[in-house]
């Protein structure tokens, strides 16, 4: 079955094979939505679960995400033509004063692997930029990353700015990064802390589904 093949090659990080199989599926007349939802996303889900269970680590996730991306690029125009919408929209970034982006990039990849549309704001992102982007782009999620104990406080500013902008009830604010904890998340009034990228993607999808309902 071609969906299983796509999923397996994706899990093995074989980007060229994934690209070729996705193209083959398109040529066979399979819908882009089916290829995404029955081939690519299940493959990333397996990797995400293994990552959460410490069966694989970041390198395996990176190469799987690269393979996913190769396949997804082929599907993008077809999905648009089919009128398929993303499951939700996220703006993500590393907070102001912090240039570290490994964790942020991983979360982004895992979220895309769940079929979410992700706007990557990059690093050193001000609270205003997070909030303005969420407001202007209609994001359901603001996802903030920090590596440093000295920059994690900016996440509290993001929560405040979202309140001031009157969008607090329309967005869920997620926080993560090496020094961030559940306790810190509660203290600043954010909505969710997750300890790894795969859990962050699960949580984001859950929030988007909840807000859509």
């Amino acid at each position: 079955m071609i969906f299983d093949d796509i999923s397996e090659k994706l899990q093995a990080g074989r980007a060229r094979d994934v690209k070729a199989l996705v193209q083959q599926a398109i040529d066979e007349g399979i819908s882009a939505q089916d290829i995404l939802e029955k081939g690519l996303v299940p493959g990333m889900n397996v990797i995400g679960e293994k990552f959460k269970n410490n069966e694989v680590f970041v390198p395996e996730v990176l190469v799987a995400a690269r393979a996913m991306n190769q396949g997804a690029q082929l599907l993008k125009p077809l999905l648009a033509a089919e009128g398929v919408k993303a499951s939700g929209k996220v703006c993500i970034g590393t907070v102001q004063g912090d240039l570290h982006d490994i964790g942020k990039n991983l979360v982004k990849m895992m979220m895309e692997g769940k079929g979410l549309e992700v706007i990557d704001l990059g690093t050193d992102v001000s609270p205003e930029t997070f909030v303005e982007t969420a407001k202007n782009e209609g994001c359901q999620i603001i996802a903030c990353s920090a590596l440093l104990t000295t920059t994690m406080g900016v996440m509290g500013e993001v929560v405040k700015k979202a309140e001031e902008a009157g969008i607090r009830d329309k967005v869920r604010i997620m926080v993560g990064g090496a020094p961030v904890t559940e306790e810190f998340c509660r203290k600043i009034g954010a909505d969710a802390y997750t300890s790894d990228a795969a859990s962050a993607a699960d949580k984001a999808l859950e929030f988007c589904t909840e807000l859509a309902g």
Binding site: F51, N54, V56, F57, V58, P59, E60, I102, G103, A178, S195, D196, A197
Partner: peptide, 12 residues
Amino acid sequence: CFKNGPIVSVPF
């Protein structure tokens, strides 16, 4: 290594 384990694969 970082908070989610090694940044090279364990078999490598």
